[in-house]
């Protein structure tokens, strides 16, 4: 009974959300695009002029730029690899019969609720500190020399911290998916003599494909924007070793006051995110329509 009246009402009900998001999408985007073609420095705001493609050229020739893109992709790829593989094993483990399963699950998912600055500072100071950290104590106990993680392996350290935060998310979703797997199917496969690996490969993994797709989609959205973890640990350094694209933009905008340059970086970040998104949305769209 979709009368014209209800349709009008429906439109009214949707209008605030749609309009807000439309404004939220278009206004900053248009401004970023506009600024990216301007010579505009916040220290000298009176002197704004048309820059053409200079900002892009500047960003493109900056050696930090390619490193930042590479680091961005490494963070996304590295964390996805750790969380998807690790999360699968953890979910399989948590799905086994055991005592105190509820508590184990609570312990495992907890890191997800820890805000990024806290997570990063805990790891930086208490766990990975070369002098007083837990890793250092363990290394010394076995007679080794402690590693200065953030100086020697800055990007890896950040990947480790971010992976620790997202591993619970992947685990929880995989576990939910596992638990909806039909027990009879498992038994039938077992009776047919399918081994552990075969059962996992031909039965469990296909069943989890949807969950895996969703985890990759959601995590990618958040991982492209990793910021606070870098800010409080390495501050992008040493050099640009742990600077990703968001961090480079922040640095250009708020530390160098270069509005034009930062905006060019922003446009590039949007293009990068869209390329990634295109692939993922296509995959997810296929997987979600079922």
């Amino acid at each position: 009974m979709a009368t014209r009246q209800t349709r009008t009402l429906a439109r009214f009900m949707m209008a605030p959300s749609v309009l807000l998001l439309l404004v939220w999408m278009i206004v900053p985007l248009a401004m970023t695009l506009w600024f990216s073609f301007q010579n505009y420095n916040l220290l000298n705001p009176a002197n704004v002029s048309w820059a053409g493609f200079f900002n892009y050229q500047y960003f493109y020739t900056d050696p930090a730029f390619f490193q930042a893109i590479w680091n961005t992709l490494l963070i996304v790829g590295g964390v996805l690899l750790i969380t998807v593989v690790g999360g699968t094993f953890l979910a399989l483990l948590l799905d086994q019969p055991m005592f105190g399963q509820g508590i184990v699950r609570i312990l495992v998912i907890s890191p997800f609720f820890v805000m990024p600055p806290v997570a990063a500072l805990i790891w930086k100071n208490m766990i990975m500190h070369p002098g007083y950290g837990v890793f250092a104590s363990i290394t010394r106990f076995f007679g080794g020399t402690p590693i200065d993680w953030f100086a020697q392996y800055p990007l890896f350290s950040i990947i480790l911290i971010v992976a620790w935060q997202w591993l619970p998310f992947a685990t929880l979703i995989f576990l939910t998916s596992l638990q909806s797997l039909d027990g009879e199917q498992k038994e039938a496969a077992e009776m047919d003599g399918a081994g552990l690996v075969a059962r996992f490969w031909y039965l469990t993994l296909p069943h989890m494909s949807r969950a895996i797709t969703v985890v990759i989609l959601i995590q990618t959205i958040f991982l492209l924007g990793v910021y606070a973890e870098i800010l409080v640990t390495t501050n992008g350094g040493p050099g640009y070793a742990s600077t990703n694209l968001p961090f480079l933009i922040y640095r250009t905008a708020l530390l160098n006051y270069d509005v034009g340059g930062a905006s060019a970086g922003g446009v590039i970040a949007i293009i990068l995110a869209n390329i990634v998104a295109l692939f993922i949305m296509r995959a997810v769209g296929k997987n979600l329509d079922r």
């Binding site: 999408m25 985007l29 401004m31 970023t32 968001p246 708020l254 949007i270 998104a277």
Partner: peptide, 24 residues
Amino acid sequence: DILMWMLSTKMMPAAAVLVPIYLL
């Protein structure tokens, strides 16, 4: 389509619009 579009606005990296938002 509207739902997918809404989701896609989440794809916009926050840092990319840091400058305009900060100035606004």
